[in-house]
């Protein structure tokens, strides 16, 4: 680990002032960054601790405003999250371990980096995220956990967040603060697809800070759920995960928002499936057809073809359960 200095930001303006210099990284709970510092994959010269910034969770219009420094556990346990946004509470508690969720912040979770093993192995393998242009050893390597949607020949890594998948299905907005002021981007547009620049992972400007996440009210008369499929029952990253918000009335789909985890370089909003469902019958066949429509463009790699069928089945099962709850 190379040496760095440490500073604690008192507020967002302070953080952005400190963060404007070269070589600065913001520090949340440190659960991803500390690991990457040890591997010298991240090499900042200054860490600006942003855990003292707003961690408040408060009602805003009919929705919820969540400070970026809120710990994952605090969000998952919040009464309004548990009752109005169960998909979010469930997604968070499916991630990492209780200890890590107590440390991890919302901002840090969204900006955590991929778990592609070649990305982590800085000594032995080529990786375009670490060293732009050198090549990607995962494309033709061991890629069972990699992407089937949205990837490129330069990078096939998946985004590891569970929380982000729920936020994508909930139409969340991300509040940003930078040297040129404030702006808001939809969560689904926070992360970029890799294209030929997999090292540029988000639309954030240098030094730009995530200050909060805003959730709109859930669409009326809907239910939501999160299901995560992994290699073991607990404490593992998703092979496939599904976040869904579904409304059913008189056997017809009145609202559908679906996002997938474990299959793409970013939380993957399944808009093709949503369009196929809306206004149609809430039947198992319709759910399966919508899932297949979403996955029609899937490009499986050598080892991860199983994810296509697994994603189709998981989408179908989650929607089926949500529909039965409203029958």
């Amino acid at each position: 680990m190379i040496p760095f200095t440490y500073a604690r930001a008192e507020n967002a303006a302070d953080a952005v002032r400190l963060g404007a210099a070269d070589g600065v990284k913001y520090l949340g709970g440190g659960t991803n960054l500390v690991d990457l510092l040890r591997e010298s994959i991240e090499r900042p010269t200054t860490l600006v601790d942003v855990t003292g910034l707003s961690s408040a969770i408060e009602e805003r219009d009919a929705g919820l405003l969540i400070g970026a420094a809120a710990r994952n556990t605090a969000v998952a346990e919040h009464r309004l999250v548990r009752t109005r946004y169960p998909v979010l509470s469930r997604a968070i508690s499916s991630g990492a371990s209780a200890q890590i969720r107590n440390m991890a912040t919302v901002g840090g979770n969204l900006l955590q980096r991929t778990r592609c093993p070649y990305f982590y192995d800085a000594d032995g393998f080529r990786c375009n995220k670490r060293n732009p242009g050198e090549g990607c050893d995962a494309v033709d390597g061991s890629n069972r956990t990699h992407a089937i949607l949205g990837a490129s020949s330069a990078c096939v890594a998946v985004h590891p967040s569970d929380l982000g998948v729920a936020l994508a299905a909930l139409d969340a907005d991300v509040h940003l603060h930078g040297t040129t002021g404030n702006r808001t981007v939809p969560l689904t547009e926070l992360h970029r697809l890799p294209g030929d620049r997999p090292d540029v992972e988000t639309v954030l400007e240098p030094g730009e800070l995530i200050t909060a996440i805003e959730l709109p009210a859930p669409p009326p008369a809907t239910r939501s759920a999160y299901r995560k499929v992994r290699d073991r029952a607990s404490y593992a990253f998703a092979l496939v995960s599904v976040a869904a918000v579904l409304g059913v009335e008189d056997g017809r789909v009145t609202a559908a928002r679906i996002a997938l985890g474990g299959v793409a370089p970013k939380p993957w909003r399944a808009r093709t499936a949503e369009a196929a469902l809306l206004g149609g019958p809430a039947t198992e066949q319709a759910f399966r057809a919508a899932a297949e429509a979403e996955l029609a463009d899937a490009k499986p790699l050598r080892d991860n073809g199983f994810k296509v069928e697994l994603a189709a089945r998981t989408i179908t099962a989650v929607l089926g359960r949500l529909a039965r709850e409203q029958a």
């Binding site: 440490y6 520090l27 440190g30 659960t31 860490l47 209780a98 200890q99 890590i100 440390m103």
Partner: peptide
């Protein structure tokens, strides 16, 4: 690396992994 829990301690009563804590 945060993966085994052997380093767990309590910070203000909350369990954390001390290996990933600066």
């Amino acid at each position: 690396q945060g993966a085994c829990g052997a380093c767990t301690v309590l910070a203000d009563g909350e369990r954390i992994v001390s290996c990933l804590a600066l």
